[in-house]
Write a protein that binds this DNA or RNA. Sequence first.
DNA 1: CACAATTCAATTGGGCACAACTAAATGGCG
DNA 2: CGCCATTTAGTTGTGCCCAATTGAATTGTG
Lengths: 165, 165
Amino acid sequence: MTVTPPSTAQENATEDWLHLDSQICFSLHAASRAFNGVYRVILKDLGLTYPQYLVMLVLWEQGTLPVKKLGEHLRLDSGTLSPLLKRLETAGLVRRERSARDERSVEVRLTEEGVALRDRALEVPRRIVTATGFDLAEIGALRERLDQLTAALDAAAAQELPGNR
Amino acid sequence: MTVTPPSTAQENATEDWLHLDSQICFSLHAASRAFNGVYRVILKDLGLTYPQYLVMLVLWEQGTLPVKKLGEHLRLDSGTLSPLLKRLETAGLVRRERSARDERSVEVRLTEEGVALRDRALEVPRRIVTATGFDLAEIGALRERLDQLTAALDAAAAQELPGNR
DNA sequence: CACAATTCAATTGGGCACAACTAAATGGCG
DNA sequence: CGCCATTTAGTTGTGCCCAATTGAATTGTG
C-alpha cells in the first residue's frame, strides 16, 4: 500500500479518523449528487435545473425580490445568480427590472408564465419524497440534523479563515 | 402573493409537501456547500480542491488504479475525472500511463510527491470533525442515514428514467 | 478470420459555485 | 457641497458535474 512509519497508538487513532472522514465526506458528496440526479430527472419536464427550481420556489413563496434578497435566501452570490437569472429570463419565466428607488438594485419578478409553472411544479415534492423512501418524520429529523451541521460548519469556516488556523 | 385556486383539503396537503420539500432540498444543498467551504479552507494549504482530495484519498488507500475503477469508487465519470486528473498530474501528484495489458485503460499512479502529501493530509480529518461540532457516533449515524438516502435516490432515479414516470 | 457490439478514456458543451474584480449608485462625513 | 466608503449587480476565470459524442482497443460470434 502506501508508505507509513511504524505505528504508535496515537498514529493509529489518526488513521482511524482519516477513514471515518473519508466515509462522511464521501457520503455527503454522494448524497448531494444523488439528490441532484433525481431532481434533474423530475424537473426535466418543467425545463428547470435544480438551482433554478430553488430560485422559483423562493419567488413563488416570496413574490418579487431584489437579487440581493434572493441571494440571502439561497446563500448564493451574484456570480451564480446573474447568469442563472438571465437564463430564467430567456426562458420567459421572470423579468428583471432596475428598481426606481435604488438604481443599484434589480427586482426579479415572475412573469405570468412563471406563476403558471407553479401548478405543474406541485407534483414535484411528492415524487421527491417518494424517491427518498423516507417518511415525513424521518425527513424532518434529517433536515434538522443537516441544518445543525451547516450552522456548525459555517461558524467553523468563519473562524478558520481570519486566523487561518 | 401568487395566484392559487381556492383550496380543498387535498390541495392544502400538496402545499404542505411543497413546503417540506423546499426545506429538505434547501438543507441538503446548503449542507453540501457548507462542507465544501470548510474543505476549501482547510485544503488550501495542500493545494487541493475537495474532489481532488477525494481522489487522493482513494489512491492513498487503494494504490494504483485505472480511471474506470477510480470512477466506480467515487461515482464519477471520465468527463469529470479526465480534466481533474490532468490537473493532479500537472501538480506533480500523479502519473497517468496507458496499461500495457489493455491499451484502452489508463493507470493512475501516485508520484513520490503524491505519496508524501499523505502525511500532511493526516491532520485534515481531525479539523473537519472538529468543524462539524458532532462527535464520532453522531457522524456515524448521519453517514448511515445519508447512505440510505443515496441508495434510495439512486434506485428511484433508475426507475424514473426508463419509464420516465 | 471478419465484423459487430462493447468497453474505456477523452472531448465538447451547458450549467452551477465561488473568488476576485469592475462599475455604477448611494449614503455619510468633514 | 464634495469626497470617500459602502452597497449592489455584473463579469471573468477556475474548477466541478453530467450528458452526449468520438475514437481506439478489445471481445464475442458467425
